[in-house]
Design a binder for these strands. Sequence first.
DNA 1: TGCCGGCATTGTGTCGACACTCTGCCCGAT
DNA 2: ATCGGGCAGAGTGTCGACACAATGCCGGCA
Lengths: 271, 271
Amino acid sequence: MPAIGCIPPPSPLICRQTRLTRARPPDIRGRMPDGVASDTICRAADDATAADRLFAAVGELILSGAIEQGAKISEPDLAARFGTSRAPLREALRRLEERKLVTRIAHQGARVTRLCPERIAEIYQVREALEGIAAREAARHMPEAAIAELRRLLDLHEARVTAHDVYRQGSEDDDFHFRIIRGSGNQMLIRLLLDEYYLLIRLLRRKLSRPGGLAQRALVEHRRVLDAIAERDPELAEAMMRRHIAAAFDRLRQAMVVPNPAPRPRKEDKA
Amino acid sequence: MPAIGCIPPPSPLICRQTRLTRARPPDIRGRMPDGVASDTICRAADDATAADRLFAAVGELILSGAIEQGAKISEPDLAARFGTSRAPLREALRRLEERKLVTRIAHQGARVTRLCPERIAEIYQVREALEGIAAREAARHMPEAAIAELRRLLDLHEARVTAHDVYRQGSEDDDFHFRIIRGSGNQMLIRLLLDEYYLLIRLLRRKLSRPGGLAQRALVEHRRVLDAIAERDPELAEAMMRRHIAAAFDRLRQAMVVPNPAPRPRKEDKA
DNA sequence: TGCCGGCATTGTGTCGACACTCTGCCCGAT
DNA sequence: ATCGGGCAGAGTGTCGACACAATGCCGGCA
């Protein structure tokens, strides 16, 4: 039973600058939460296939909010807008579907996934478990150097937070989490969280006003997680991370109820 | 902020009998571990698109071992074998890729994912966390009726196990887990585990001889999980489930080392 | 005899076109 | 006036074909 090369392509994913046709100025603003994920998941999307580029571009379009949640996605439209045929676009949509960013119904088309509160709660439940594992494994495998670097990062965050009391658009928050996830060394987990779950988290962040004023709190929790990892205490790290995620969700939920009492429209279209 | 319909299509997936062309006898044996998942994930794949049918068929081909792990998948070949064009096959492959059953490299083709021991360990780590959550939530949300039914199922298993001392091909084992996962009521979790992770688990089960003689042990663990759920004790349920998965992995790992010292061929082709 | 470069072949990525399905609109009937 | 059926339009699913990339083979050269 041979068992060697597994999952070689580390991650095809949403990248920063993504052009579409080989020689064309960037018409899509594929901005990433600066300095965050650009180095994480990206692969040079330059010599990649059109489908890859479209996957990245459309993904970014969705995550950036350029295409609203629930909006229908017309294949001919989008393909034309990108100057490609439908084939690569369909591939991109299919991959986005698997990552749950779009929902497709046969003979009816694709639309951007709409996240309801129940689904958001579920996402956070799963995220809690997964990042708990990540923290646990990071406590086991994360190199000392990475830990030190992460500590410096948190110091930097603290400086910013005391100045503005806000984790800028969640990108710094993500940065912290990404590093721990990568620190786990668990390839399956890394792929699952970075390639799939964080897309959903970024998506739901779009529709939720970030609860400001609590960055200080999050920072404290981050420090606790990091301390546990630095002490090489897997159980504690897991517990702290889980508690942090749970707390973050609590904060999120409170922000969720306020702005929107209960408007429940049934149908609407047009992208 | 409207937020209503999310993730409507419960699950397109590997089904039992899957025909390809509308009117053609089933040339692909799409057998499921009988009586297990047939009711879980399936959707009548009859009026579905060719891509859906191919997705199910090729998936089953892989899971059944008809296409070996690491084997190359030639698009023209497979398409011809199924009497379709490459377009729907490519869609199927792409979806299988997202589910990590096949690995594709641009301009080079797709091959069945090969699971190395490290990856298997990672899968079990993640599975432990996810099914832990599932058990926890099942303790909260699973209907009494379902619990009672599950108890009867375990009684049935016990009868079989005392007779043969083996969980038949893992299908009964899966049945137990599936019910708990579904009992969690967490749609995201259900999709993640059933649509994605259990495919991998079935795949790795193919390459690992099932450690017989330990069914009794697994059954005891199953009962503990169920008891905790019946007592509506989420924490205990989670702990028991995690322990069960961890123990199952231990058993698996022992089975992993024995039959295969270290043959490591580098390359081979042909499906 | 072994290594390197060119060539043919295979196969993937992409394209344009067609068929069938679904949606929305218009019209006639009740 | 409202409801049901038919029709047109749009859109998705599928197909066959082509271009470029990658692989493997063959011959030339050291």
